[in-house]
Amino acid sequence: MSRARIVASPAAWLIWGAVAFFLISLAGVITSVVVNSFGLRWFDTWLPQGWTTRWYSTAWTEFGLFDVLVVTLEVAVLVVAVSVLVGVPASYVLARRSFPGRRLVYLLFLLPILMPPITYGIPLATVLYKYGFAGHLAGVVLANLVPSIPFVILTMTPFIEQIDPTVERAARMCGARTHQIFARILAPLLIPGILAASILVLVRTVGMFELTFLTAGPDSQTLVVALYYSMSAAGIRAQQSVDAMAVLYTTSMLVLLVIALRFVNPTQLVARVKEEPD
């Protein structure tokens, strides 16, 4: 590394300068929100004139944050549970088997990830409204399943490929049936992969704005959507309490992500995900 730096010194300086500039701006963006959420009054100065934690309690009561958090948790847990239950067997077949039409099935599972959520979200929400799902928790969960199931399949495939097929064959030789192989052999071996996929789906679902926004009713808003509404209706609410809510949101996302990073290496995971479109 040091040798390379001596060879290309100006370029290296430029690159590290750009990284530093990006990180400083990023820190500025985040800190300004955090500072504002604790600030008393902040107009034309470097820092607010006083400090308070009042905005957090205001945000908690005014936005009914407890209910919003409960809804967010319910949606996230349901989406994770269903997409893991549905996605893991499918990814097992896709990883292990070759059968006619396999490429087509793969493409079908990839499309929801490749399309912008708004593109399929609008027709999906229309259909969900037609059948009376939208506006309730069920509609939000169903809509969020669309990108989550393919995501579980893509995340699980490398984990399944790592398991030696001879283990399964040995179990079959000893007389185990398919459901027994799943319950006794594969499930224990796949626990790390299932955990990784669950946490990533959890992060994605909590952060998914478009689909939830299109299908949520007044009592089925998740945190992101509530945040968006509170900010786009600016002027009614104090900006600081919106900031306080945003800080709460980011903190919870950050905790989830740090947990996720303990299980998966981001560069490897993304590499797996992106290889598929080929």
């Binding site: 239950l85 499918a90 077949v93 079908l108 027709p123 669309v146 398919t178």
Partner: peptide, 27 residues
């Protein structure tokens, strides 16, 4: 390569067809 194991694919496929392909075609 077509045997009973392919049934495992069915729930996932059904979800994608019902929640992605059908709404898209409907749209």
């Amino acid at each position: 390569g077509v045997d009973r194991h392919l049934w495992l694919l069915l729930p996932g496929l059904a979800c994608v067809l019902a929640l992605f392909v059908y709404p898209f075609a409907y749209g």
